[in-house]
Design a binder for these strands. Structure first.
Length: 848
RNA sequence: GCCGGUGUGGUGGAAUUGGCAGACACCUGGGACUUAAAAUCCCAUAUCCGCAAGGAUGUACGGGUUCGACCCCCGUCACCGGCACCA
């Protein structure tokens, strides 16, 4: 009987669903609990793409293996369904976002089930379900009540197309991450979340979690703690300009100051008329606001700025009056939004000083500041031109200066973080309503918790308003309400939450998805917390992952969750890329021949491709994109080869942590592997369930290797090892026991085929809940070892010796090899090196 | 510009983390089976010289450490990802 994957896959998917084979049991203390997590998908209109199955299959394999090892596994799935793409799609197609979401979730569910994942389908969460977002709103209210949510007017990123504010994190290369339109800066009153209050703990607690190192490094760098000093500069207007600096030792070299164009003092000076060149200043401010971050960066080479005429600052150590500039290379959002410029020892300041012909003073010895700024990493470098610091090392000068500043009351030591508070409001419809109302008399008031969820109202038009207000603002029935405090008239907040909100805590809901009195019950939280293993993309390292840790720490502080950290372990997968159809090496032989004939020579044909498709054509491997037509749809792969082949290929494709290209022709290799297994086991093998003498060693080795590789996410070599075992079975026919072991090992990778053959063989139970096979280390070992024999480090022969053979005997055996003799005869042996069971290296030199 | 990462046959990738480079696959070539094709099975497959035995070269490039380097160190280049000119 042929391997009919369509029939088999449908059959077992139905079986697992009906029997709830993968249901997790809360509170089962007889088994070890295991809670692996994948990042739940955003149900986009395009459906599942071939990138999704990589992390999902990986964690499914881990989940299935642990289940077979007897653990109580909670492997859940859900949908992160609020967000702009759905809303934009709904607007474009005159549908309601709710209907679009419903349709997309149904499609995703169908596609995910076709892949045979061992999800607990009774625990699905949907962030747009009022029963879910009730608790998202509840968490926000707790944050508000604890002073972590506040309203602030600040320069925010304004997308000119979406007419909405974006977090800095959502602006990619100066354009809106979602729509690609230019982003400008604009002042707007926004709800903010005080993530900076948790900055230190978000750094410190990384020590207690098992995250891959590059995730930790990236989070630390993002939070960006630096220690330095805050210094007060008096202005001639009487105001005080605060700056943060990590190099207060260079204060004697501060010859001017730069404020960000958005700085508060600039505003007040303009209003009060202190500034004598207001037009020029306003023009520069407007130009800076129109610029995206990308443009600010591109203009890097030419420093621009405007001197504020009519006001100067006074350097607190020298007493010198120094000019004040505004320039867009100083950002409002970092530090105090103002810097003291030390052109001798900061390259940006140096370039600015050159452009504006400002004095450059050397205060640290060692460089040539006429050529470039001297940025010494040497903390023993000596201070010069610096009054009481002269002759000191940088190392000593810093604390000395801090002490001086503190004594004079014009500065203090300070820790600064790059991390900024989180802009939390969006002027959009498809998000969680913010459960606050504004009363003229009482100010902002939280609604009563009994009124949660605050439902997203049905509106006629959820399209953006031109004035930048949320579509909800047009719903006067909904907006006008009463103040929870005084009962007077009040207005609801019409902004909604960003998409990140719902994904901050979704893993908690999986633990107890139906709970109506808490985000999850205490028993469930105690039993399942924390997530044991969270795998996701590197692109979420500084946004989702950090936000989620922040919310969790807050929930811990108010006694809602039992652990400080949400995720005990974090791993990451590489992207699935596509082959560039316009690259020479990816063309078929016929196409190449045709092009060569057309263009005259291979060289000309290659040039033609680059000419026609641009530089893109030079890269053989590129991101999948609709425009290139290299997008692979999992549905079509499943139809042609089956889900088991897709699962196997996506895991065999390469190192899980690295990006890998989808190669259509390589999929066949995995199908062939499954066909070969099918042919071995499609008829019942008779006999006992012990391993055959011929295959025993290979079976034990494979069990060991596959088990270890799954835990270390080396799925490609696990599959290679199973392929080797199957090749061995083609040499020595497998026993019933051999096949049983193979099917058990195969089960996490290709679960449908494993189930079907398990049934055909008549083994007990089903493959998905079978016992994970155990290996005997002694039986994986060889009696004899082949040693590499080198002469002067060059491989000359191999020699077979008993395992763990004595060094002396190994050398003797090596020296006896004719091919070794050829290189040692007449030579003097200087030294021999033996690496047990591996190699012998004989060092010789010409005899005297 | 800064930060992080990567670089191995025609292709994807292995390499017990300093010990036989190229496992396992894909592609390609050859053979068997077939009227034929597909499928399947078997063999070959880093490069160069050689009929062969064998030899030489080879992990982006240039150095270094070591008996021995894809692996460690210094420098260079290319590509990928991230970025908030972070003071």
């Amino acid at each position: 009987m042929a391997y009919d994957f369509s029939r088999i896959e449908k059959k077992w998917q139905n079986y697992w669903l009906e029997h709830k084979t993968f249901a997790a049991v809360t509170g089962d203390d007889t088994r070890k609990k295991f809670f692996p997590l994948i990042e739940f998908p955003y149900p986009s209109g395009e459906g599942l793409h071939v990138g999704h199955p990589r992390p999902y299959t990986a964690m499914d394999i881990v989940a299935r293996k642990r289940r077979m090892e007897g653990e109580n596994v909670l492997f859940p799935i859900g949908f992160d369904a609020f967000g702009l793409p759905t809303e934009n799609y709904a607007i474009a197609n005159h549908m309601h976002p709710r209907d679009v979401t419903k349709r997309n979730i149904e499609r995703f569910t169908r596609q995910l089930q076709m892949l045979g994942y061992s999800f607990d389908w009774d625990r699905v969460v949907d962030t747009t379900d009022p029963k879910y977002y009730k608790w998202t709103q509840w968490i926000f209210l707790q944050m508000y009540k604890h002073g972590l949510a506040y309203k602030a007017s600040m320069p925010v990123n304004w997308c000119t197309s979406c007419k909405c504010v974006l977090a800095n994190e959502e602006v990619v290369e100066g354009v809106c991450e979602r729509c690609g339109a230019p982003v400008v800066r604009k002042e707007k009153s926004q709800w903010m979340l005080r993530i900076t209050a948790y900055a230190q703990r978000l750094i410190d607690d990384l020590d207690d979690v098992d995250y891959i190192e590059r995730v930790k490094i990236q989070q630390r760098n993002w939070i960006g703690r630096s220690t330095g000093a805050e210094v007060d500069f008096k202005a001639t207007s009487g105001d005080v300009i605060k700056v943060f600096t990590t190099r207060c030792d260079t204060l004697f070299g501060a010859t001017y100051m730069v404020l960000s164009p958005e700085h508060e003092l600039v505003k007040s000076w303009l209003e009060s008329g202190v500034i004598r060149n207001p037009d020029e200043v306003r023009r520069y401010q407007a130009a800076a606001a129109a610029k995206s971050d990308m443009e600010r960066t591109e203009l890097n080479k030419d420093k621009t700025g405007v001197a504020l005429e009519g006001v100067d600052a006074i350097n607190p150590v020298t007493g010198t009056e120094i000019p004040i500039f505004i320039s867009d290379y100083v950002l409002a959002s970092y530090g105090t939004g103002a810097i003291m410029a030390v052109p001798g020892h900061d390259q940006r300041d140096w370039e600015f000083a050159k452009a504006f012909d400002l004095p450059i003073i050397e205060v640290v010895k060692g460089g040539d500041i006429t050529k470039e700024a001297w940025i010494s990493k040497d903390e023993n470098a000596i201070m010069v031109n610096s009054g009481f610091l002269n002759g000191m090392s940088v190392k000593d000068a810093i604390p000395t200066m801090v002490r001086w500043l503190e004594e004079k009351g014009v500065g203090r030591s300070q820790v600064n973080y790059k991390l900024r508070d989180w802009v939390f409001s969006r002027q959009r419809y498809w998000g969680e309503p913010i459960p606050l109302v504004y009363c003229e008399k009482c100010g902002w008031q939280p609604i009563d918790e009994s009124e949660l969820p605050l439902l997203l109202p049905d509106v006629e038009s959820y399209e953006t308003t031109d004035n930048g207000e949320s579509p909800l603002s047009k719903m006067t029935d909904w907006v006008n309400t009463t103040c929870p405090k005084c009962g007077g008239p009040a207005r609801r907040e019409t902004d909604t939450m960003p998409q990140w909100a719902g994904s901050c805590w979704y893993f908690l809901r999986y633990m107890d998805p139906e709970n109506d009195t808490a985000l999850a019950g205490k028993d469930a939280l105690d039993y399942w917390s924390p997530v044991d293993w969270y795998n996701g993309g590197m692109e979420h390292t500084t946004l989702h992952l950090l936000y989620s840790r922040f919310w969790h720490k807050f929930l811990y502080d108010i006694g809602v969750v039992p652990t400080k950290e949400p995720y005990a372990k974090r791993t990451s997968h590489g992207m699935i890329l596509g082959l560039n159809p316009h690259n020479w090496s990816n063309l078929s032989d016929e196409e190449r021949a045709r092009l060569i004939a057309e263009q005259g020579s291979e060289e000309k044909a290659r040039e033609y491709l680059v000419h026609k498709y641009g530089e893109m054509a030079e890269h053989p491997i590129v991101k999948m994109s609709k425009s290139l037509g290299n997008v692979v749809n999992p549905d079509s792969v499943i139809k042609e080869f089956g889900a088991d082949t897709l699962r196997l290929y996506i895991m065999f494709i390469g190192d899980f942590e690295k990006a890998a290209p989808w190669n259509p022709s390589a999929v066949k290799g995995c199908k062939r592997f499954l066909d070969r297994i099918w042919a071995l086991a499609e008829k019942r093998i008779e006999g006992g369930e012990e391993y055959s003498a011929a295959n025993e060693k290979e079976v034990h080795r494979t069990i060991k290797k596959v088990g270890e590789d799954i835990e270390s996410m080396k799925f490609n070599t696990a599959i290679a090892c199973m392929m080797t075992l199957v090749n061995k079975f083609y040499e020595s026919a497998p026993s019933r026991g051999d096949i049983k072991a193979l099917l058990a090992l195969l089960s996490p990778f290709a679960p449908h085929m494993a189930e079907e053959l398990w049934e055909i063989q008549g083994f007990e139970g089903i493959a998905s809940t079978a016992r994970w096979p155990v290996y005997d280390l002694a039986k994986t070992l060889d009696d004899e070892k082949e040693l590499a024999v080198q002469v002067n480090g060059k491989l000359r022969a191999t020699v077979v010796v008993p395992a763990d053979c004595e060094d002396g005997a190994a050398v003797e055996a090596a020296m006896a090899e004719p091919r070794v003799k050829k290189f040692t005869d007449g030579m003097q042996v200087v030294k021999t090196i033996v690496v047990k069971n591996k190699l012998v290296n004989i060092i010789v030199k010409p005899a005297k």
